[in-house]
Design a protein around this nucleic acid. Sequence first.
DNA 1: ATGCCAGTTTACCGATCGGTACAGAAGAGG
DNA 2: CCTCTTCTGTACCGATCGGTAAACTGGCAT
Lengths: 213, 213
Amino acid sequence: MGSLWAPPGRPSRPDGAGALRAPQTREAILPLLAETFREHGYEGASLSAISRRTGLGKGSLYHFFPGGKEEMAACVLTEIEAWFEARMFRPLREDPDPAAALRAMLAETDGYFRSGRRICLVGAFALSTTRDAFARRIDAYFAAWRDAVAAALARGGVAEARALDLAEETVTAIQGALVTASALQDPGLFGRTLARLALRLAAALGEGAGRPT
Amino acid sequence: MGSLWAPPGRPSRPDGAGALRAPQTREAILPLLAETFREHGYEGASLSAISRRTGLGKGSLYHFFPGGKEEMAACVLTEIEAWFEARMFRPLREDPDPAAALRAMLAETDGYFRSGRRICLVGAFALSTTRDAFARRIDAYFAAWRDAVAAALARGGVAEARALDLAEETVTAIQGALVTASALQDPGLFGRTLARLALRLAAALGEGAGRPT
DNA sequence: ATGCCAGTTTACCGATCGGTACAGAAGAGG
DNA sequence: CCTCTTCTGTACCGATCGGTAAACTGGCAT
């Protein structure tokens, strides 16, 4: 039976560009793992679902991730952390133009979360007992996001306390929009939330720095 | 095999642990079910966990909820809907003093979610594929909340479009605060979010109705 | 050609999953 | 006392869970 559908000759392409066939590196697998965890949550993402999504049998999965499901989730979190650090947090902290960095952050947010059609894996993990297994990393992710926004605001002339408060509001609003957009199946909601945040951030920057010297 | 040692009549203790007896009505069970679903999510809440939490064996659970886990979750949702409708949505729509109703809503929110130490079950359901099983009810819950807030604002003199926008922001911010408060284990965050919302709602009401005659 | 080796397949493990069957215990009413 | 109904404990079901073991594959350097 199995010999029929099982492709005997596997073209092992060293180039990992093609996502059509089974990916053969950890890096290529991670996005598929992430999507599976997003859809079903950590507990709900069974190995068979992962196997189906990735096209890899259990043996292959355990070859790449000897630690099993927990290692898979940990690696996904690492990749997410790296992405946000490189694309959002570092620019927020270092871009010479804080206002532009904040606008770029909102644009990246809209892209990453597909205008609200995709959820935040870290936020979803935070809501169940899955949190316990990754508590430090979940905490660090949100703290880094908030602090990066606050740093940009502060460099833009906003007072420290006000910057932290507005940063907290920003991250909170984004997470809330992911929840309500999913719940209401209303993609427009996410864009409206980001637009509100853009206005509010710009306003704070405008007040903070009276006139650029 | 087991016929030899199987005791035909196991005299179950009439009252061994007299302290907290198992609740014997659906209504009394629901809060325990809700808490179990909150902690583990729908998929993660196993019958054994539910059995442990409620102190009821499978036999009793299936006696009260013949439909199994899905019926349990459905009943929990019904109870939640009723609570919010009675304590928050109806007052928002009908209270002669909309400003007071909005303040009361925020206070009820703080109480219900234990200042951010408790999560929103409906929001958590919305984030995974569990959503599919309860899609209509999840959608209706958030829509009702948003529309009730908008109705209160409108009766307070806020323009229709502005009221809806602010209501959407309010519900979204509350949900986001539940996520980030859980993630950062920072209960203060929830209170700060509610305080921000109180200011913003009051401001909108203040603008909308120039001077009360 | 040979032997290594990353990668895969397949079968299997004990545990637990959600759910069912049913006998027995507990109360209520007579 | 007996009976009927309501509730509960327990054994059991097939399926699936996360995870392991080992045989096999095909490519590659020697």
